[in-house]
């Protein structure tokens, strides 16, 4: 049967892709730890806009800074802040969702109306408006991202919990004298964790894109921080003469977002989260 063939082959290809990407990441991390010798923000105008060489594998930018160094250290900012925003969104969204779904009634309506209010604006617009209001800077950008992203987790978790809480095994747990807290942590949490991991890994890519794009338009990281979006912005005037200055940070973003999406797909297969079939 065709279905069974594709079912068995697909995860294998994905696993191989994932392994290659993880291998590359490990190699890059090793390079960053062992070989890296330049200061990412040290300005050296004698060496500006150098082409690729052994000394500077990806050349230097308009202020003579090593591009490879900046991309590698920039991953700390882009990926690190992405993860931080994601963790904060999960940490706020999941408990809210569990409480709203399990307790129902007023608490449910209260949380969900707040969620509705947050959801009625597109992510990017809210992020732009909030970082515009609070002032540019990576901290304010993170606050803006957490404010728009926690809602997704609260909604997802709430819908799972409210469909599970009427099932007999939850009733049995009540009859067995388990407190609400233990029912939530022992019986409901295992149902949530897979879904949340899948959504989180897919969201990480989106958050990284959001951070980079807002940094690109000047609302996120400020110079001289080697954030990838900010690097793209710095390189804009030199797009015609030295296109590699834009290509490499751009590739880094593509690479990381691809990695998080593949990870999300892999987790979805692993946790067997039901896919919405388009057919």
């Amino acid at each position: 049967m065709e279905l069974s063939v594709s079912k068995f082959n697909k995860p294998t290809y994905k696993t191989i892709g994932l392994l290659i990407l993880l291998g590359t990441t490990a190699a890059v991390a090793a390079y960053a730890f062992l070989v890296l010798k330049y200061d990412p923000s040290f300005v050296n105008l004698n060496e500006r806009l150098l082409p690729m060489s052994l000394e500077h594998p990806l050349g230097t930018d308009h202020l003579g800074r090593d591009v490879l160094t900046r991309i590698l250290l920039g991953s700390q900012l882009t990926v690190g802040y992405g993860l931080l925003a994601l963790l904060a969104a999960v940490a706020i969204g999941v408990p809210c969702g569990i409480l709203a779904g399990f307790k129902g009634g007023f608490l449910d309506r209260f949380f969900m109306r707040i969620a509705d209010a947050f959801q009625s604006f597109p992510d990017t617009i809210v992020a732009i408006v909030l970082s515009g209001l609070l002032g540019p800077g990576i901290d304010n950008l993170l606050i803006a991202i957490v404010m728009v992203k926690w809602v997704n987790y609260a909604r997802l978790v709430r819908s799972i919990v409210s469909s599970e809480r009427h099932k007999d095994y939850i009733t049995m747990a009540k009859i067995n004298g388990l407190s609400s807290w233990r029912i939530m942590s022992k019986h409901l949490f295992p149902h949530i964790i897979g879904h949340v991991l899948v959504l989180a890994s897919l969201d990480l890519g989106k958050i990284i894109l959001l951070i980079s794009s807002l940094s690109y338009i000047g609302l996120g990281s400020q110079p001289p921080a080697p954030e990838w979006g900010a690097m793209l912005n710095d390189a804009r005037p030199y797009f015609q003469s030295v296109p590699s200055l834009m290509v490499f940070p751009g590739l880094a973003i593509v690479f990381v977002v691809l990695l998080t999406n593949l990870l999300g797909d892999y987790l979805r297969d692993k946790f067997d989260v039901k896919k919405e079939l388009s057919s």
């Binding site: 095994y169 009733t171 295992p190």
Partner: peptide
């Protein structure tokens, strides 16, 4: 079938 938690 539904009085045991399927995930545990």
């Amino acid at each position: 079938a539904i009085s045991l938690n399927p995930k545990l």
